[in-house]
């Protein structure tokens, strides 16, 4: 899908939200929902940053770490991929305090979602590194580079381009998963919507607004990733397209 279509959709979504806001029945809910949306965005951004860090480290650890590190990274990836994000949130928030470790709900949200998506991300990073042509590694060896030099200067810059689209998917997954944090006492967008719905029973306006807000957020993300991809592949294949 072209980037113009995406921008068109975003403009449409925002326009519909704005149009709804002119109606008294809808305007009522907007401040509360926007407040929730801010929390959602905060968790999504911090969680994504943690996911990138975890993904890169776990991938490098699994590929090049000494045996214990490799083992640890594999355990991490399999635990966080193999159990549901909801259970991870509950475990960190309700079970950990039983062992004397109480974490703030916001911190739990960022950590759980970041670790969860990071586990998937590590496979994305690992796959992208392995997809770089073997000849590139061999050229680095022939130039006597160390493994760190190869990765940093030659392999990762090429792998980066291949990573962008799958990371885009993961970020959107993470954004949508933030709705789960309403179950550990956080007042995110989904929580606000449920709360308002319980108080007013105005189901249609509330959930229509919420739907459009999530869509708008994920469209912003998709457009951002598309622009990044375009820039990065331009750097890799300068001149190929003339």
């Amino acid at each position: 899908m072209g980037i113009r279509t995406l921008i068109g959709m975003l403009v449409a979504a925002v326009a519909v939200i704005a149009a709804m806001a002119t109606q008294e029945a809808y305007r009522l809910f907007l401040p509360g929902l926007l407040q929730g949306a801010v929390l959602t965005i905060e968790i999504a951004i911090l969680g994504s940053l943690l996911a990138i860090v975890m993904g890169v480290f776990a991938a490098l650890a699994r590929l090049y770490g000494p045996a214990p590190v490799r083992w640890l990274a594999t355990v991490y990836v399999e635990i966080f991929r193999g159990t549901s994000a909801l259970v991870q949130l509950f475990w960190l928030f309700f079970v950990l305090p039983q062992f004397g470790v109480s974490l703030d709900a916001f911190l739990v949200a960022v950590v759980a979602l970041g670790l969860n998506v990071g586990a998937y991300g590590s496979e994305v990073v690992r796959g992208a590194i392995l997809s770089v042509a073997r000849g590139q590694w061999e050229a680095c060896t022939a130039l006597n580079m160390s493994r760190a030099q190869m990765l940093r200067r030659i392999i990762l810059p090429q792998a980066f381009v291949a990573m962008i689209p799958p990371w885009g998917n993961l970020f959107i997954e993470l954004l949508k998963s933030t709705a789960l944090v309403s179950l550990i006492t956080l007042s995110d967008l989904a929580f606000k919507a449920q709360q308002m719905n319980q108080n007013t029973f105005k189901t249609i306006p509330i959930f229509t607004l919420v739907l459009l807000m999530y869509l708008a957020m994920s469209l912003v993300l998709t457009i951002g990733m598309r622009l990044l991809e375009r820039r990065a592949s331009l750097g890799l294949a300068r001149g190929r397209a003339g």
Binding site: G135, A142, Q149
Partner: peptide, 26 residues
């Protein structure tokens, strides 16, 4: 040093950058 059948130049670097990369980093 070695030269390969399939060249294996670094695609994200110019000819000059290809030639100075290892002298600088290594």
């Amino acid at each position: 040093g070695m030269v390969f059948q399939s060249f294996n130049l670094f695609p994200h670097m110019t000819a000059m950058q290809n030639c100075i990369e290892a002298p600088i980093t290594v």
